[in-house]
Computed example of a mutant assay.
Amino acid sequence: MTRRPRSTKLKFWPVDVKRRTKPRKAPRQSRRKRNAFSARLTIDVTPDLRARIKITAFERGVTVAYMLRLLLLKAFPRTKGGRR
């Protein structure tokens, strides 16, 4: 068997030297790292309820997580004296 010759495609650098030597920005931190005091909450719901929640969130133009956070904040408002 004979091997195929490797493809020798040329790669061109950008014409603008400043663009080529520009330092890269530091990667953005994820939301989880920015908000160190958040926690995950897992609940079991029926497939029917899950579908209704997703449809409602889509109709409102928000994410399911955002909509559920608002509902939980309404049900469990902050107290003036701190934690109970």
Rank of each mutant, 00 (worst) to 15 (best):
S30T: 15
L72R: 05
K22E: 05
V15N: 12
K9I: 04
I43Q: 03
R32P: 00
F58A: 14
R40I: 07
T56S: 13
V15Y: 09
K18D: 15
K33D: 02
L68Y: 01
I55E: 11
L73D: 15
R31S: 13
L49M: 11
R40H: 10
T79G: 07
Q29K: 12
R83K: 13
M1K: 09
W13R: 07
T79S: 12
R24I: 04
G82V: 03
T21C: 03
L73S: 10
A65I: 04
Q29S: 11
P47Y: 03
R6L: 08
S7T: 12
A57S: 08
I53Q: 00
K9T: 14
Y66C: 06
A57R: 00
A65H: 08
P5Q: 06
R40W: 08
L71V: 11
V64D: 05
R28V: 03
T56C: 07
Q29H: 07
K25N: 11
K33N: 06
L72W: 04
A51W: 05
F76W: 10
A65D: 13
T21L: 08
K80R: 12
L68S: 00
R28E: 08
T56P: 00
R50Q: 14
P5Y: 05
R19S: 06
K54W: 04
F58N: 08
R4C: 02
R32N: 09
R69I: 02
K11G: 06
T21S: 04
Q29P: 01
R34W: 01
R60A: 10
L70F: 04
R31P: 01
T56R: 15
L70I: 08
G82H: 02
M1N: 06
L71M: 15
S38F: 02
A65N: 14
V45I: 15
K33I: 02
P5S: 12
K9E: 10
F37G: 09
L72C: 14
R34D: 00
W13D: 11
R69T: 02
D16E: 12
I53V: 14
R69K: 13
A75P: 00
R84I: 05
P5T: 10
P5K: 08
E59G: 09
R32S: 11
A65F: 03
D16L: 06
I43N: 03
S30V: 06
L10F: 08
D44P: 00
L49R: 07
M67T: 01
T21W: 02
A65Y: 02
L72N: 08
K18N: 14
R52Q: 15
F37Y: 11
P14T: 10
L10K: 14
R24W: 12
T46A: 12
G81D: 13
I55N: 06
A57Y: 01
G81M: 05
K25W: 03
P14R: 13
R34H: 03
T63I: 05
V15P: 01
R6V: 03
D16N: 15
I55G: 04
A36S: 12
K11R: 10
P27I: 01
T42W: 03
T2V: 14
F58R: 13
L68F: 01
K9H: 07
A75M: 13
T56M: 07
T42R: 05
W13S: 08
Q29M: 10
L70Q: 09
M67W: 02
R31L: 12
I43V: 15
